[in-house]
């Protein structure tokens, strides 16, 4: 079976903090349709850069990325990114308008009225139906990320790219959002590539965990995660997998 998303022999140099130059060097990766993949690794290992390459925000120096055997070119509605930053929502638009922005950009549903209805439906799914007319600055961090998730999902991208979206949240909110994300994923069946530095999060969420090597700029190991859902951190399998990953990083 051929893979849905294929990263082929990618080379890209990138800067980490203090302008230190690092490289992704001949990275190969295959992801299947509807798969939930997490990428973990030490900070500066290139996982965010890899995500940006897949999003098409930046171009690789060598190699290419294929979706359904077609080389990607630039950013696209098909690959929507959810960022870690809380200000990924536009502060001058209400929550509803922020979600409508995505629909309008893709020019879906013809009328404004219809777009609003669809946006409301998605906001209901992320439990923000009571906050439609709020401006982002009036919401908590968790609510902002939920709204961002709704905006990303509303255009039904085939691939959802998530760059530590819950990284700045407190642990309780993070847990809530992880559950919410899984809930939605069951329904929407997007292919998800989720970058995190939190091993526990990776084990809870994904079907496949990709461990990046921060020295070689390549993938160190790909670990399938077949634990039955819902996964609970106190179960033995969970702890075993967690420890295995912990040693790898």
């Amino acid at each position: 079976m051929s893979s849905y998303l294929e990263v082929k022999n990618i080379k890209k140099s990138y800067k980490v903090k203090d302008d230190h130059l690092k490289v992704i060097n001949g990275l190969e990766l295959k992801i299947n349709r509807n798969e939930f993949v997490t990428i973990i690794g030490a900070s500066g290992c290139g996982k965010s850069t890899l995500l940006k390459l897949i999003a098409g925000f930046i171009e690789p120096e060598e190699g290419q990325i294929d979706i359904n055997n077609n080389k990607i070119k630039g950013a696209s509605f098909e690959r929507i990114m959810v960022f870690q930053e809380f200000d990924q929502l536009f502060p001058w638009r209400t929550i509803l308008e922020n979600v409508c922005f995505a629909l309008k950009a893709k020019d879906l549903f013809g009328s404004k009225q219809k777009r609003k209805e669809v946006a409301k439906k998605y906001l209901k799914e992320v439990h923000l139906n009571n906050y439609l007319d709020y401006y982002p600055h009036q919401l908590s961090g968790g609510m902002k990320q939920r709204a961002a998730l709704a905006r990303s999902l509303v255009t039904k991208p085939s691939i959802l790219l998530m760059d530590e979206p819950f990284g700045s949240l407190d642990s309780q909110t993070r847990q809530e959002l992880q559950n919410l994300l899984l809930e939605i994923w069951y329904k929407e069946k997007n292919t998800v590539v989720f970058v995190t530095h939190d091993i526990k999060e990776a084990v809870i969420l994904s079907d496949k965990i990709i461990v990046m090597d921060d020295q070689k700029g390549q993938i160190k190991e790909i670990i399938p995660n077949n634990l039955t859902r819902p996964r609970r951190p106190y179960e033995n399998d969970f702890i075993e997998l967690f420890q295995k990953l912990n040693q790898l990083i």
């Binding site: 925000f57 696209s76 990114m81 922005f101 995505a102």
Partner: peptide
């Protein structure tokens, strides 16, 4: 302007 705004713009093919 935060970098992320521009990335979102790109992402939505503006």
């Amino acid at each position: 302007i935060p970098e992320v705004y521009k990335l979102i713009g790109k992402n939505y093919e503006l």
